[in-house]
Simulated assay, not measured.
Amino acid sequence: MDDGPVTELGAIFLPQQPPERLRDVARAAEDAGLEQLWLWEDCFFTSGVAAAAAALAFTSRLRVGIGILPVPLRNVALAAMEIATLHRLFGDRPIVGIGHGVQDWMGQVGARAASPMTLLDEYATALRALLHGETVTSQGRYVRLDGVRLEWPPSPPPPLLIGATGPRTVSLAGRLGDGTILAGDTTPAGVRAAVDRIGPAEGHKVVVFLPASTGPGAAERLARQQEKFGAEWPGVAGDAAQVADVVRQLAEAGADAVILDPTPEEPSPEGFVRFVAEEVRPLVN
Rank of each mutant, 00 (worst) to 15 (best):
G4I: 03
V6P: 08
V6W: 01
V6Y: 07
V6H: 07
E8A: 14
L9F: 12
F13T: 02
P15L: 05
Q16Y: 14
P18C: 01
P18H: 02
L22Q: 10
L22R: 08
V25A: 01
D31R: 15
L34M: 11
W38R: 02
W40D: 04
F45K: 12
A50K: 03
A51F: 12
A53Y: 05
A54S: 13
T59V: 02
T59F: 09
S60R: 15
R61F: 02
L69R: 04
V76M: 01
A77I: 02
L78T: 13
E82P: 00
P94T: 05
G97I: 05
I98A: 11
V102Y: 14
D104K: 11
V109F: 15
G110D: 06
A114L: 10
T118H: 06
L120E: 10
L120W: 07
A124W: 04
L127E: 09
L131F: 12
Q139T: 14
P153N: 10
P154R: 00
S155K: 08
P158W: 03
L160T: 03
L161G: 03
I162G: 00
I162Q: 08
G163E: 01
G163V: 02
P167W: 04
P167M: 08
R168E: 05
T169K: 06
S171A: 15
S171D: 13
S171F: 03
L172G: 02
G174M: 02
G177T: 07
D178F: 13
I181Q: 06
G184N: 14
G190H: 01
V191N: 02
A194L: 10
P200A: 15
H204C: 06
V207T: 11
V207A: 09
F209H: 07
Q225S: 07
Q226W: 05
F229I: 13
G230E: 03
E232D: 10
G235D: 04
D239S: 11
A241H: 08
A241L: 08
L250G: 10
D256L: 11
L260F: 07
P262Q: 03
E266L: 04
F272A: 04
E278Y: 12
N285F: 10
